[in-house]
């Protein structure tokens, strides 16, 4: 999100500040360690996770703009550090961690952010957000309050887009085939934008759509909610 999708992160900061919160950001290069973790290299993931944990320990709430990074911190850090000295810290940070849309809706109780986007959109549920964190309602509750926005659910909305982190590079043919199915479902809705709370899914989907020359555009949920 730092290098490739700064607009999403900037939108999150601006929304949280408008709601009166003081935002602190981890330093340059802070990565949750999910790429090595998901590939099985837990020993290589731990130093990265440890560095992030230390930076997050003072925060009242940790808000993450990605379902998969959110699942990493909230769900997998306790497993990654089970039986290690950082276990308690991992547990405590996990308990304070929220995915962005969940933080707004469930923690703050806010759904209307005064945004407007007169367009047809379809929403893609990132699998980690959907199945590891159980996020389904919050993004939709937020989109429902965006003026002019019409949400059209796509067929098989809960089917994976095929990104899957390093999987997308290790098994590109399978990843691409899955992505083609997803893009087909999104295109069928006639939407102008495909919105998600996960930038990595969007990178994959946008990559396929651009290559195919399709006009459908991807947007992070925070960008939609910051569209005033």
């Amino acid at each position: 999100m730092d290098a490739l999708f700064p607009r999403a992160a900037i939108s999150m900061v601006q929304i949280l500040e408008r709601l009166g919160h003081r935002v602190v950001c981890p330093r340059e290069g802070a990565c949750c360690g999910q790429p090595p973790f998901n590939s099985g290299y837990w020993a290589e993931a731990r130093p990265m996770a440890r560095q992030l944990l230390v930076q997050l320990q003072e925060a009242e709430a940790v808000v993450i703009g990605s379902g998969s990074c959110g699942a990493m911190v909230k769900k997998f850090y306790p497993e990654l550090f089970a039986g290690l000295p950082e276990a308690a810290l991992a547990q405590s940070v996990a308990e304070r961690t929220w995915e962005f849309s969940e933080f707004l809706v469930r923690k703050l109780g806010v759904t209307d952010l005064g945004a407007q986007l007169p367009a047809k959109v379809t929403f893609h549920d990132g699998c980690h957000g959907l199945r590891e964190l159980g996020i389904k309602h919050s993004p939709r509750a937020l989109l429902a309050k965006v003026r002019g926005l019409e949400l059209i659910e796509m067929k098989d909305a809960e089917t994976c887009c095929g990104f899957g982190g390093t999987f997308s590079a290790k098994f590109p043919a399978i990843s691409t085939a899955m992505g083609d199915v997803k893009c087909g479902s999104a295109l069928e809705t006639g939407a102008e934008y495909i919105v998600s709370n996960d930038s990595s899914c969007l990178m994959h989907i946008q990559g396929l759509l651009s290559r195919a020359g399709k006009p459908l555009k991807t947007l992070h949920l925070a960008e939609v909610l910051n569209h005033l």
């Binding site: 909230k74 769900k75 997998f76 497993e79 089970a82 039986g83 959907l130 964190l133």
Partner: peptide, 13 residues
């Protein structure tokens, strides 16, 4: 394990 809703995944603790 694996219940959605954000219960930490603690494995074999």
């Amino acid at each position: 394990h694996a219940e959605p809703g954000g219960k930490p995944h603690t494995g074999l603790t």
